[in-house]
Simulated scan of single mutants.
Amino acid sequence: MKSKHSYSQVEKDAVYRTIAERRDMRHFVDGQLEEGLLARLLTVANQAPSVGLMQPWRFIRITQPQLKQSLKSLVESERNKTAALLDERKKEFLKLKVEGISECAELIVVALPEGREKHIFGRRTMPDMDLASVSCAIQNMWLAARAEGIGLGWVSLFDPLALADLLNMPSDSRPIAILCIGHVEKFYEKPMLVEQQWATPETVETFLYENSWPQSE
């Protein structure tokens, strides 16, 4: 039975299309974001669901060129350390573009705040629900950016302690993501790692169980 609360077919198609065409972007072109766009993206991030309505996200806008270069150096350092652990795939990994820090129009560090231990609603036995909430906020930004025709890339190759120190963050806070946001020449037809033949995505049937976890044979 179709819900009486359903959106129109055109509106639903737009939602599903945005989700399907969202990409983790690494390649950006010159050009500032239109006025008000960054504010819109941060607004939808702040509208994300959060356990206990704790809103455990903090956004640090990086505008100083020297600081951007320091972030890029942190990413490059972790990139090399990761590559060293990949054995036969090291050279293949080093060919991948993992960030667009120097080329993007806006650079945002997303972090968990200090004092999270006081929020126990929904977190007494699941303390990592604050991280899940922040992930929802980033996904909101990602989808809104794609609908606006703007690329967004989530960079996670960095030492969180080094990044926290660089940004003078409180000792019990935690950086989660470096977000590169900006104009792109085009969006990848498929996820970049698929296009670069780094990985092949599985279908949902692979991950769908019923009633219990399947027992291995």
Rank of each mutant, 00 (worst) to 15 (best):
Q55E: 13
V10C: 00
E217N: 06
E99K: 04
W142V: 15
N140I: 12
K4G: 12
I120E: 09
V194Q: 07
A105M: 08
E92R: 10
P160W: 02
K90E: 13
C104H: 09
V15I: 15
R58I: 14
R116F: 03
K91L: 12
K72E: 05
V75Y: 03
S171M: 04
E92P: 05
K68F: 01
V155M: 01
I120M: 14
V15D: 01
A83N: 03
E217P: 13
A20K: 04
L167D: 02
A45P: 00
K97S: 12
Y7C: 14
V155H: 03
D30Y: 04
V51L: 14
L67C: 01
G151A: 15
M25C: 14
G153L: 11
K90F: 07
L33N: 09
L157S: 04
A177H: 01
V204Q: 02
P49Y: 00
L38M: 12
Q139C: 04
S212L: 00
P175H: 01
L96M: 13
N140W: 10
L112H: 08
L71N: 05
P49I: 03
S216L: 08
P160Y: 08
P56S: 05
V194M: 08
G52F: 10
L85D: 01
G100W: 09
I138A: 00
P170T: 06
L163T: 02
Q66L: 13
V10R: 02
L37N: 03
